[in-house]
Design a protein around this nucleic acid. Sequence first.
DNA 1: ATTTCATATGAATAAGATTTCATGTGAGGC
DNA 2: GCCTCACATGAAATCTTATTCATATGAAAT
Lengths: 124, 124
Amino acid sequence: MKICTTYACHKFFATLANPTRLAIVEILMDSPKNVAQIAQVLQQEQSMVSHNLKPLMECAFVFSEKKGRKRVYSVNKELIEPLFHLIAFHESKYCPNGKTCLTRRGIKLERMREAQKTLYVNHE
Amino acid sequence: MKICTTYACHKFFATLANPTRLAIVEILMDSPKNVAQIAQVLQQEQSMVSHNLKPLMECAFVFSEKKGRKRVYSVNKELIEPLFHLIAFHESKYCPNGKTCLTRRGIKLERMREAQKTLYVNHE
DNA sequence: ATTTCATATGAATAAGATTTCATGTGAGGC
DNA sequence: GCCTCACATGAAATCTTATTCATATGAAAT
């Protein structure tokens, strides 16, 4: 059964393997927002938000709708909710304090740029 | 609720956002194997397999056990099975023929090295 | 029709990840 | 105890991805 060795599957994970895009997903979990609103919450440039919304759209992680001049983005809860519940369960089992899985790659976390650091929540 | 803006979550996706690692996961879905066996099925170097097994281990996507001289790797089915069912459902809904979500990034697929291309299954 | 607001796109650069090849490690067998 | 098999690790080179800044598009308001 070939389910994971497809480009679509790779793209699925690659799209979510980015702090900016994860943050956008999280922000939209709260409520639908337009690009400027997302940028404001994230404290990031508008163009960066647009760039990152694109792959999220292509993978149907988010949807969008025009409302007057603005384009309102919303999250695909049908996918995102069960997905993140699965991850939450996995994490609770295998990295209970959020430290275990950071150990080996702690250095990379250090090297992360300031802008990205603020996107992450500190587990401790 | 901060579930996805954690480094652990980023690492979760980043680890699976790689064709070699996805292929390893798929190969191990079939049956547990040692490093040399994985390398043989994948037609890749042993060191590459080892390098890629490491993050898979750290994220508990795979487990390992020593058997004599060899180290046998197996997949964490409790996670991988529901995860890929979720993705399969999502894909069936939003990229039914495997083409939709390739359209915009088709060029990148072209640019992929030969070694990686063979890891992907052609949807069409 | 023109201006302006909201978002999208392009291209260059910067940053990060993957692969490769060489070498290290360590447990098993002899 | 030594050798060797099986695997892991390190570091450089290469390839990929993300971000930035400038500019384009396009629809709504005037």
